[in-house]
């Protein structure tokens, strides 16, 4: 059976359901350098503005939190960030930017990757793919 529901753990909560296109990246992200805060693009090609951004974990510069903040001030931030492992740079970035933060099991991230670009919603602690 093809999975369409993925359990999440809520780290920084949000009000109401969060729906948007999935952007699934299987490699770690260095916010500073990998995301352009002015355009809201990841690696220069994937738009994350208004999307559900899923990736394993943050690496690189501790300035990364300010990249999340700049995205939110410029109305270019993802609707939610979903990672397999949280870290202080991501957490404080999401807190000051009001970005909901969730974690997902590493093996679920791999199974989620075929849905890259598909519509999904976070409802009651689960990521539900719109089929």
């Amino acid at each position: 059976m093809v999975e369409t529901v993925f359990p999440l753990r809520e780290v920084i909560s949000s009000r109401g359901p969060l729906c948007g296109e999935l952007v699934v990246e299987l490699k770690p992200i260095a916010y500073l350098g990998d995301i352009d805060p002015n355009t809201g693009y990841l690696h220069g090609k994937y738009e994350i503005n208004g999307r559900l951004l899923v990736f394993p974990n943050a690496v690189g510069s501790t300035v990364g939190s300010y990249i999340l903040y700049a995205l939110s001030r410029g109305n270019k931030s993802p609707i939610a960030v979903i990672v397999t492992k949280v870290d202080p740079i991501t957490i404080i970035g999401c807190i000051i930017s009001d970005i909901p933060l969730y974690t997902i099991e590493p093996e679920k991230l791999v199974r989620l990757s075929p849905y890259n670009g598909k519509q999904a919603c976070i409802k009651r602690g689960e990521l539900v793919i719109e089929v």
């Binding site: 002015n38 501790t62 300035v63 300010y66 903040y69 700049a70 001030r73 410029g74 000051i96």
Partner: peptide, 15 residues
């Protein structure tokens, strides 16, 4: 950290 204007931009400056 977050001291270069090129890194934190206007958003960081205002923060």
């Amino acid at each position: 950290s977050g001291v270069s204007y090129f890194n934190i931009g206007d958003a960081g400056l205002m923060f």
